[in-house]
Design a protein around this nucleic acid. Structure first.
Lengths: 236, 236
DNA sequence: AAGGCTGAAAAATCAGATCTTTGGCCGCAT
DNA sequence: ATGCGGCCAAAGATCTGATTTTTCAGCCTT
């Protein structure tokens, strides 16, 4: 599966994970103050460990630390919502639906552009990987093996984003993989993938291979709009 | 102006800034190892300060820390390219052009979607803010006051992204502001804004106000495509 | 009521000791 | 010679107690 660790090793890593999950899930309300000493005893570790975790949380915008006051939980508007760990925590917590919606809308903007760019930058290997992924999708889509379909789907989108030649779009690979995984595992997609979906993927692969940016963008737009519709209802 | 600090206060903040800038600018090559003790003397601060800075760098994917080995500078593929500080460092360093290109392509995907969403979610206040920003742009565009134009431009895009009702798109506000600021300050836009640009902004504001998602998306696409073209040449 | 002073609280920093992990070396058996 | 296993030392990880610095909050003055 998506073999992401995302958890730093060591004591501070576990503290970070636990605090991060608590904050993003609303276990600590915004504005609540945590005392370092309090956390020390709660987790049974020393100050340095707590402080390092707090520093990372601070760098993610989840808390602010001020002398004489303590560590204050920050409002959601201050969070770095693109941090992979925050995305993961929110997908694992109560915010899942909201997070999936945000990410789907983001995909709707990003992936068509990535497809267009890929049409102009993809290497022959990447084109091969794309068509290969589509074939896998077709096979497993027909047989109804959703897990295998998911793997091929992720492979397709990962390759496409990387082929865009844009580092930042490439960096969204993990995010897109999370969305695809999430919608499959939470049964937000049909029991059997729509044949059109597979056809559109094939069209994208074809367009990328022939360097037709506009066609690639159009077909990709079809894909993500259909996906959004399927996942969120007819919300355009 | 965009009053972003982005620099945590305290010693560890300065160390973080300096190390981050060094790494992202290639001052330290990927694979190079830094010893904590070495850094201690180099910056004249104690271990705890260095460690906290290292933890944050690690959480941004810039370095990895392993016992018995030291702190290793990570390859660019491991970096969290969406971290605002990394964006800032790269914009301030040698990567500026590459960074601006990546960001522009990202904008090209994101902003039209945000415009469409804003057309369906914007509050009356936000509509007012949009038209206000457009008027400011028109005034300062005609008078050739690029700084004031920039402020209004940022205001426009900030409001629009926030009005999308999508947290993640809203989180891109700072990023977009950086792009706009960057292209103005590095003279990547014409001495006098094109009249069409202002007209398109007005169209977006109008479409958002009347709830016409498609028109808003289309006009916004015109804006960002023109901006990309102006900044990077005729690259589509 | 406004502004400035002061004390204490809590984080920030420092520094020394100790713990834990781990890469590399050495020796043994094959 | 080759490969496996255990030992050692290096370097980060953690703990801890002392000290410094910042800043909130209450008090005092005007």
């Amino acid at each position: 599966m998506a073999d992401n660790d995302l958890t730093s090793p060591g004591l501070h890593g576990s503290v970070l994970d636990e605090l991060g999950a608590l904050i993003t899930s609303g276990g600590f309300a915004a504005g609540q103050v945590l005392r370092i000493e309090q956390l020390e005893t709660r987790f049974g570790v020393s100050r340095s460990v707590i402080r390092e975790a707090i520093r990372v949380l601070e760098s993610m915008g989840l808390v602010t630390s001020r002398r004489r006051v303590g560590v204050t939980v920050a409002p959601r508007t201050a969070w770095n919502l693109f941090d992979p760990r925050i995305i993961r925590w929110r997908l694992d917590g109560d915010d899942r639906d909201e997070q999936l919606r945000s990410l789907s809308e983001l995909r709707r903007g990003v992936e068509p552009v990535a497809a267009a760019l890929a049409a102009r930058h993809a290497t022959p290997e990447q084109c091969g990987a794309l068509t290969g992924a589509v074939m896998q999708m077709a096979v497993h889509g027909r047989s109804g093996d959703l897990e295998a379909y998911l793997v091929a789907d992720i492979q397709f989108h990962r390759t496409l984003l990387e082929a865009s030649g844009n580092e930042m779009l490439g960096a969204l690979t993990e995010v897109v993989a999370e969305v695809l995984t999430g919608r499959t595992h939470h049964h937000l997609m049909p029991a059997r993938p729509k044949p059109e979906a597979i056809r559109w993927h094939a069209e994208v692969a074809q367009a990328v291979q022939s360097g037709d940016a506009e066609a690639a963008e159009r077909a990709m737009r079809d894909i993500v709009e259909e996906a959004t519709r399927a996942m969120l209802g007819d919300d355009q």
